[in-house]
């Protein structure tokens, strides 16, 4: 297939599936809390709505960063789609993208001049400790498979069986990472916690918010895609979809049932999980 068509198709799928997954997550959370909940396509509707809303650019914002940061957010996740589903490139690159995502959160928060955004920005720095499980997962997978290419990781799993059975603790760390990056009342996501309104998105109104929401949907799809690919190997599109729905419902349940932790507790939880994951995985790798 034409490469550009491939990329466009994958980006569109990522956006649509990610949006609907958000809807499913909110539905699950609502049903657990005995509410009817919004329709499943709510995220999609919101995105459309924000694009035709009146947009104002705050007088206090740091231009042009305030606008360009939304473009960068979209660009890095398009890059992730290229590295992931399109070319199955190096895993290390995906983790560089996660790192830049952190920086985008940081700068989107601080460039608006809003105190809520600023708090989110400081928290983004604080939660850099959450990158620890990320790199640990990376190194553990590398130690197990001897490669960082997604295509060869998939090939390895076709030969030796899914990695989730050999590296369950690494999978647990990755799930903690997904929860820490999940939207809608995540216990670990301190940059978007509700005590600072909408975190770094607070001062991005109108079409800029709509743009951010498109990138968010792609982000969510890619997080789940990477998890499924790294720990389950090659799946058919239908299996990917089923896996994503199950994971989203699981994380929706976790988010609905847990309190939102404060920054210190959130960071300590992640470091503890990382410690258990790293030590446990290495012990399992050498002695079992």
């Amino acid at each position: 297939m034409n490469l550009m068509a491939d990329i466009l198709l994958n980006v569109t799928i990522a956006f649509l599936v990610g949006s609907v997954l958000f809807g499913i997550q909110r539905k699950v959370m609502a049903r657990i809390q005995l509410r009817p909940g919004p329709p499943i396509i709510q995220h999609l509707l919101h995105t459309m709505k924000f694009f035709i809303k009146e947009t104002v650019f705050p007088k206090t914002a740091a231009m042009p960063f305030y606008v360009v940061i939304t473009v960068i957010l979209c660009a890095i996740w398009v890059a992730a789609v290229i590295v992931g589903p399109v070319t199955q490139g190096p895993l290390l690159l995906l983790f560089a993208i996660f790192a830049i995502h952190k920086i985008v959160e940081h700068n989107a928060g601080s460039s608006s001049g809003s105190p809520y955004g600023k708090l989110s920005c400081v928290r983004a720095v604080f939660s850099a400790a959450a990158e620890l499980p990320l790199f640990a997962v990376l190194i553990i997978i590398f130690l197990q498979t001897g490669t960082m290419q997604l295509s060869t990781i998939v090939a390895y799993q076709a030969e030796h069986g899914a990695l989730i059975f050999t590296l369950p603790l690494a999978a647990m760390m990755f799930i903690a990472l997904i929860i820490s990056k999940s939207y809608y009342y995540s216990p670990l996501n301190i940059t978007l916690a509700k005590d600072i309104v909408s975190g770094f998105e607070t001062e991005h109104f109108g079409m800029l918010r709509g743009f951010i929401m498109i990138s968010e949907a792609i982000t969510w799809y890619m997080l789940l895609w990477v998890f499924l690919t790294v720990f389950f190997g090659a799946l058919s599109p239908l299996m990917y979809l089923i896996g994503m729905v199950i994971l989203t419902a699981l994380i929706g349940a976790v988010n609905a049932l847990t309190p939102i932790l404060n920054p210190n507790h959130s960071v300590m939880t992640e470091i503890t999980l990382a410690f258990i994951g790293i030590v446990g995985s290495i012990i399992m790798m050498f002695y079992i």
């Binding site: 740091a62 960063f65 290390l92 983790f95 560089a96 790192a99 830049i100 952190k102 920086i103 940081h106 700068n107 601080s110 460039s111 001049g113 600023k118 920005c121 400081v122 983004a124 720095v125 604080f126 850099a128 990158e131 790199f135 990376l138 190194i139």
Partner: peptide, 27 residues
């Protein structure tokens, strides 16, 4: 983390950017 409380977001972002990117490269 305390260093980021000051104004001047374009300058603060490079502090964070440099540390995260350097860590990824160091790996």
């Amino acid at each position: 983390a305390e260093m980021f409380r000051t104004a001047g977001s374009p300058f603060l972002v490079i502090i964070h950017l440099s540390s995260l990117l350097v860590i990824v490269r160091a790996i």
